[in-house]
Protein backbone atom coordinates (compact mmCIF):
# COMPACT_ATOMS: atom_id res chain seq x y z
CA UNK A 1 0.00 0.00 0.00
CA UNK A 2 1.26 3.44 -0.87
CA UNK A 3 1.40 6.57 1.21
CA UNK A 4 -1.48 8.01 -0.77
CA UNK A 5 -3.69 5.21 0.46
CA UNK A 6 -2.44 5.11 4.03
CA UNK A 7 -2.73 8.78 4.96
CA UNK A 8 -6.45 9.26 4.25
CA UNK A 9 -7.20 5.82 5.64
CA UNK A 10 -5.47 6.55 8.96
CA UNK A 11 -7.07 9.98 9.20
CA UNK A 12 -10.50 8.49 8.62
CA UNK A 13 -9.98 5.78 11.21
CA UNK A 14 -8.78 8.33 13.78
CA UNK A 15 -11.75 10.57 13.05
CA UNK A 16 -14.23 7.72 13.29
CA UNK A 17 -12.84 6.27 16.54
CA UNK A 18 -12.81 9.71 18.17
CA UNK A 19 -16.41 10.22 17.21
CA UNK A 20 -17.39 6.83 18.63
CA UNK A 21 -15.64 7.61 21.89
CA UNK A 22 -17.74 10.71 22.40
CA UNK A 23 -20.54 9.89 24.75
CA UNK A 24 -23.93 11.40 24.07
CA UNK A 25 -24.00 12.70 27.65
CA UNK A 26 -21.03 14.91 26.94
CA UNK A 27 -23.22 17.00 24.69
CA UNK A 28 -25.17 18.82 27.31
CA UNK A 29 -27.56 21.69 27.22
CA UNK A 30 -25.88 24.59 29.01
CA UNK A 31 -27.92 27.71 28.71
CA UNK A 32 -25.19 29.80 30.37
CA UNK A 33 -22.88 29.32 27.42
CA UNK A 34 -25.37 29.53 24.59
CA UNK A 35 -24.66 31.18 21.23
CA UNK A 36 -20.93 31.47 21.84
CA UNK A 37 -18.77 32.01 18.78
CA UNK A 38 -15.78 29.69 18.33
CA UNK A 39 -13.17 29.94 21.09
CA UNK A 40 -10.44 27.78 22.54
CA UNK A 41 -12.94 26.29 24.94
CA UNK A 42 -15.52 25.61 22.24
CA UNK A 43 -13.62 25.14 19.01
CA UNK A 44 -16.72 25.22 16.83
CA UNK A 45 -18.73 27.51 19.10
CA UNK A 46 -21.98 26.62 20.83
CA UNK A 47 -25.58 26.54 19.64
CA UNK A 48 -28.73 28.20 20.99
CA UNK A 49 -28.93 25.61 23.76
CA UNK A 50 -25.27 26.00 24.71
CA UNK A 51 -24.31 22.61 23.28
CA UNK A 52 -20.74 22.30 22.10
CA UNK A 53 -20.78 22.26 18.29
CA UNK A 54 -17.45 20.42 18.04
CA UNK A 55 -18.84 17.43 19.88
CA UNK A 56 -22.14 17.58 18.05
CA UNK A 57 -20.36 17.68 14.70
CA UNK A 58 -18.15 14.71 15.53
CA UNK A 59 -21.13 12.74 16.75
CA UNK A 60 -22.91 13.63 13.53
CA UNK A 61 -19.96 12.40 11.51
CA UNK A 62 -20.10 9.06 13.31
CA UNK A 63 -23.65 8.65 12.11
CA UNK A 64 -22.78 9.82 8.60
CA UNK A 65 -19.81 7.47 8.26
CA UNK A 66 -21.82 4.60 9.71
CA UNK A 67 -24.69 5.12 7.30
CA UNK A 68 -22.26 5.66 4.43
CA UNK A 69 -20.48 2.36 5.13
CA UNK A 70 -23.69 0.42 5.58
CA UNK A 71 -25.36 1.70 2.43
CA UNK A 72 -22.20 1.42 0.34
CA UNK A 73 -21.91 -2.25 1.35
CA UNK A 74 -25.58 -2.87 0.61
CA UNK A 75 -25.44 -1.11 -2.77
CA UNK A 76 -22.32 -3.00 -3.78
CA UNK A 77 -23.99 -6.27 -2.82
CA UNK A 78 -27.11 -5.43 -4.81
CA UNK A 79 -24.95 -4.48 -7.76
CA UNK A 80 -22.97 -7.71 -7.58
CA UNK A 81 -26.07 -9.87 -7.20
CA UNK A 82 -27.83 -8.24 -10.15
CA UNK A 83 -24.77 -8.51 -12.37
CA UNK A 84 -24.43 -12.20 -11.47
CA UNK A 85 -28.10 -12.70 -12.35
CA UNK A 86 -27.39 -10.97 -15.65
CA UNK A 87 -25.06 -13.77 -16.68
CA UNK A 88 -27.69 -16.50 -16.22
CA UNK A 89 -29.87 -15.71 -19.18
CA UNK A 90 -30.15 -13.07 -21.87
CA UNK A 91 -33.71 -12.22 -20.89
CA UNK A 92 -32.74 -11.61 -17.28
CA UNK A 93 -29.88 -9.49 -18.51
CA UNK A 94 -32.27 -7.38 -20.57
CA UNK A 95 -34.58 -6.87 -17.62
CA UNK A 96 -31.69 -5.83 -15.39
CA UNK A 97 -30.28 -3.46 -18.00
CA UNK A 98 -33.72 -1.93 -18.29
CA UNK A 99 -33.96 -1.59 -14.52
CA UNK A 100 -30.63 0.22 -14.50
CA UNK A 101 -31.91 2.63 -17.16
CA UNK A 102 -35.15 3.09 -15.26
CA UNK A 103 -33.38 4.00 -12.04
CA UNK A 104 -31.10 6.39 -13.87
CA UNK A 105 -34.07 8.05 -15.53
CA UNK A 106 -35.07 9.91 -12.38
CA UNK A 107 -32.89 12.46 -10.62
CA UNK A 108 -31.16 10.72 -7.75
CA UNK A 109 -32.62 12.98 -5.14
CA UNK A 110 -36.17 12.53 -6.45
CA UNK A 111 -35.90 8.75 -6.13
CA UNK A 112 -34.58 9.21 -2.62
CA UNK A 113 -37.47 11.48 -1.68
CA UNK A 114 -39.93 8.94 -3.08
CA UNK A 115 -38.45 5.99 -1.21
CA UNK A 116 -38.14 7.93 2.03
CA UNK A 117 -41.74 9.05 1.56
CA UNK A 118 -42.83 5.44 1.15
CA UNK A 119 -40.92 4.22 4.17
CA UNK A 120 -41.85 7.19 6.31
CA UNK A 121 -38.30 8.51 6.65
CA UNK A 122 -36.09 7.77 9.63
CA UNK A 123 -32.93 5.67 9.83
CA UNK A 124 -34.50 2.68 8.07
CA UNK A 125 -35.90 4.83 5.26
CA UNK A 126 -32.57 6.57 4.65
CA UNK A 127 -30.53 3.37 4.60
CA UNK A 128 -32.93 1.53 2.31
CA UNK A 129 -33.34 4.57 0.11
CA UNK A 130 -29.61 5.10 -0.26
CA UNK A 131 -28.94 1.40 -0.85
CA UNK A 132 -31.64 1.29 -3.52
CA UNK A 133 -30.36 4.31 -5.41
CA UNK A 134 -26.61 3.74 -5.63
CA UNK A 135 -26.43 0.35 -7.32
CA UNK A 136 -27.00 1.17 -11.03
CA UNK A 137 -23.49 2.42 -11.90
CA UNK A 138 -21.64 -0.44 -10.23
CA UNK A 139 -24.08 -2.93 -11.74
CA UNK A 140 -23.25 -1.61 -15.20
CA UNK A 141 -19.52 -2.01 -14.65
CA UNK A 142 -19.73 -5.46 -13.05
CA UNK A 143 -22.22 -6.74 -15.60
CA UNK A 144 -19.89 -5.98 -18.49
CA UNK A 145 -17.00 -7.56 -16.65
CA UNK A 146 -18.89 -10.74 -15.75
CA UNK A 147 -20.43 -11.21 -19.19
CA UNK A 148 -16.88 -11.22 -20.56
CA UNK A 149 -15.59 -13.52 -17.85
CA UNK A 150 -18.42 -15.96 -18.47
CA UNK A 151 -17.07 -16.66 -21.97
CA UNK A 152 -13.56 -17.40 -20.72
CA UNK A 153 -12.46 -20.98 -21.47
CA UNK A 154 -11.62 -21.84 -17.88
CA UNK A 155 -15.01 -20.68 -16.66
CA UNK A 156 -16.76 -22.56 -19.45
CA UNK A 157 -14.74 -25.62 -18.53
CA UNK A 158 -15.92 -25.59 -14.92
CA UNK A 159 -19.45 -25.65 -16.26
CA UNK A 160 -18.67 -28.74 -18.33
CA UNK A 161 -17.15 -30.44 -15.29
CA UNK A 162 -20.54 -30.13 -13.69
CA UNK A 163 -19.73 -27.43 -11.18
CA UNK A 164 -22.85 -25.64 -10.03
CA UNK A 165 -23.62 -22.06 -10.97
CA UNK A 166 -22.98 -20.75 -7.48
CA UNK A 167 -19.71 -22.67 -7.31
CA UNK A 168 -18.64 -20.74 -10.39
CA UNK A 169 -19.82 -17.49 -8.88
CA UNK A 170 -17.81 -18.09 -5.73
CA UNK A 171 -14.65 -19.52 -7.30
CA UNK A 172 -14.43 -17.54 -10.53
CA UNK A 173 -16.61 -14.43 -10.39
CA UNK A 174 -15.94 -13.18 -6.88
CA UNK A 175 -12.14 -13.34 -7.01
CA UNK A 176 -12.14 -11.77 -10.46
CA UNK A 177 -14.27 -8.73 -9.64
CA UNK A 178 -13.03 -8.25 -6.09
CA UNK A 179 -10.94 -5.19 -7.07
CA UNK A 180 -13.93 -3.64 -8.85
CA UNK A 181 -16.14 -4.39 -5.85
CA UNK A 182 -13.66 -2.64 -3.58
CA UNK A 183 -13.31 0.40 -5.82
CA UNK A 184 -17.05 0.52 -6.46
CA UNK A 185 -17.75 0.40 -2.74
CA UNK A 186 -15.32 3.22 -2.05
CA UNK A 187 -16.72 5.37 -4.85
CA UNK A 188 -20.28 4.88 -3.59
CA UNK A 189 -19.38 5.85 -0.07
CA UNK A 190 -18.83 9.61 -0.58
CA UNK A 191 -21.98 9.82 -2.69
CA UNK A 192 -23.99 8.02 -0.04
CA UNK A 193 -22.78 10.38 2.69
CA UNK A 194 -23.51 13.41 0.56
CA UNK A 195 -27.00 12.18 -0.26
CA UNK A 196 -27.71 11.21 3.34
CA UNK A 197 -26.89 14.74 4.47
CA UNK A 198 -28.95 16.21 1.62
CA UNK A 199 -32.06 14.14 2.22
CA UNK A 200 -31.84 14.71 5.96
CA UNK A 201 -31.41 18.42 5.35
CA UNK A 202 -34.60 18.42 3.28
CA UNK A 203 -36.48 16.76 6.14
CA UNK A 204 -36.98 13.30 4.64
CA UNK A 205 -34.10 11.58 6.33
CA UNK A 206 -33.09 11.10 9.92
CA UNK A 207 -35.42 12.48 12.55
CA UNK A 208 -34.69 15.78 14.26
CA UNK A 209 -33.43 14.20 17.51
CA UNK A 210 -30.62 12.37 15.76
CA UNK A 211 -27.24 14.15 15.81
CA UNK A 212 -26.89 14.10 12.03
CA UNK A 213 -24.94 16.69 10.03
CA UNK A 214 -27.96 17.21 7.81
CA UNK A 215 -30.09 18.02 10.86
CA UNK A 216 -27.47 20.38 12.27
CA UNK A 217 -27.23 22.26 8.99
CA UNK A 218 -30.97 22.38 8.56
CA UNK A 219 -31.38 23.84 12.07
CA UNK A 220 -28.64 26.34 11.46
CA UNK A 221 -30.73 27.95 8.73
CA UNK A 222 -32.94 29.60 11.35
CA UNK A 223 -29.95 31.26 12.98
CA UNK A 224 -28.12 32.46 9.91
CA UNK A 225 -29.84 35.83 9.83
CA UNK A 226 -28.69 36.46 13.39
CA UNK A 227 -25.09 36.01 12.25
CA UNK A 228 -24.33 32.66 13.90
CA UNK A 229 -22.22 31.53 10.99
CA UNK A 230 -20.32 28.89 12.93
CA UNK A 231 -23.42 26.73 13.24
CA UNK A 232 -23.35 26.03 9.51
CA UNK A 233 -19.71 26.58 8.64
CA UNK A 234 -17.84 24.02 10.74
CA UNK A 235 -20.17 21.02 10.44
CA UNK A 236 -20.14 21.48 6.67
CA UNK A 237 -16.36 21.77 6.55
CA UNK A 238 -16.01 18.57 8.56
CA UNK A 239 -18.42 16.76 6.29
CA UNK A 240 -16.49 18.05 3.29
CA UNK A 241 -13.22 16.80 4.80
CA UNK A 242 -14.60 13.32 5.41
CA UNK A 243 -15.91 13.11 1.85
CA UNK A 244 -12.64 14.44 0.42
CA UNK A 245 -10.65 11.89 2.43
CA UNK A 246 -12.78 9.06 1.15
CA UNK A 247 -12.70 10.37 -2.38
CA UNK A 248 -8.91 10.57 -2.37
CA UNK A 249 -8.70 7.14 -0.77
CA UNK A 250 -10.94 5.71 -3.48
CA UNK A 251 -8.93 7.40 -6.24
CA UNK A 252 -5.60 6.20 -4.85
CA UNK A 253 -6.78 2.62 -4.52
CA UNK A 254 -8.25 2.78 -8.01
CA UNK A 255 -5.01 4.14 -9.46
CA UNK A 256 -2.98 1.51 -7.62
CA UNK A 257 -5.12 -1.30 -8.95
CA UNK A 258 -5.09 0.11 -12.47
CA UNK A 259 -1.34 0.52 -12.35
CA UNK A 260 -0.97 -3.12 -11.32
CA UNK A 261 -3.07 -4.21 -14.27
CA UNK A 262 -1.18 -1.91 -16.63
CA UNK A 263 2.10 -3.14 -15.24
CA UNK A 264 1.19 -6.74 -15.95
CA UNK A 265 0.10 -5.80 -19.45
CA UNK A 266 3.33 -3.90 -19.94
CA UNK A 267 5.49 -6.84 -18.93
CA UNK A 268 3.59 -9.12 -21.29
CA UNK A 269 3.80 -6.55 -24.05
CA UNK A 270 7.53 -5.98 -23.79
CA UNK A 271 8.14 -9.71 -23.60
CA UNK A 272 6.40 -10.33 -26.90
CA UNK A 273 8.09 -7.31 -28.42
CA UNK A 274 11.45 -8.61 -27.45
CA UNK A 275 11.00 -11.98 -29.07
CA UNK A 276 9.69 -10.33 -32.21
CA UNK A 277 12.65 -8.02 -32.52
CA UNK A 278 15.16 -10.84 -32.47
CA UNK A 279 14.27 -12.25 -35.83
CA UNK A 280 13.41 -9.10 -37.69
CA UNK A 281 14.68 -8.54 -41.18
CA UNK A 282 14.92 -5.11 -42.78
CA UNK A 283 12.31 -5.53 -45.50
CA UNK A 284 10.32 -8.50 -44.55
Amino acid sequence: MTKKVMIPLILLIVLYTTSILIDKDMIQVQLLTKNHPPSLEHLFGTDWLGRDMFLRTLKGLELSIGIGLLTAVLSTMIGFLLSVLSTIHEKIDQVISWLVDLFLSLPHLVTLILISFTLGGGFKGVVIGLALTHWPQITRVLRGELLQLKEMPYVQLSGKFGQSFWWKVWHHYVPHVLPQLLVGFMLIFPHAILHEASITFLGFGLSADEPAIGIILSESMQYLTSGMWWLAFFPGVMLLIVILLFQSLANSVKNDLERDIQHEAFIEHSATNHSASENKSPYS
Binding site: P190, S198, L239, L240, I243
Partner: peptide, 22 residues
Protein backbone atom coordinates in the same frame (compact mmCIF):
# COMPACT_ATOMS: atom_id res chain seq x y z
CA UNK B 1 -12.94 20.50 -9.32
CA UNK B 2 -12.30 17.57 -7.00
CA UNK B 3 -12.99 19.82 -4.03
CA UNK B 4 -16.32 20.83 -5.55
CA UNK B 5 -17.27 17.25 -6.28
CA UNK B 6 -17.00 16.56 -2.57
CA UNK B 7 -18.84 19.68 -1.48
CA UNK B 8 -22.44 19.37 -0.32
CA UNK B 9 -24.31 21.77 -2.61
CA UNK B 10 -26.77 22.91 0.01
CA UNK B 11 -23.97 23.76 2.39
CA UNK B 12 -22.30 25.88 -0.27
CA UNK B 13 -25.69 27.56 -0.69
CA UNK B 14 -25.79 28.29 3.04
CA UNK B 15 -22.34 29.86 2.85
CA UNK B 16 -23.30 32.05 -0.11
CA UNK B 17 -26.50 33.03 1.66
CA UNK B 18 -24.52 34.05 4.72
CA UNK B 19 -21.94 36.00 2.77
CA UNK B 20 -24.02 37.76 0.14
CA UNK B 21 -27.38 38.14 1.83
CA UNK B 22 -26.69 38.35 5.55
Amino acid sequence: CYLLLSTPGFWLGLLLLMIFSV
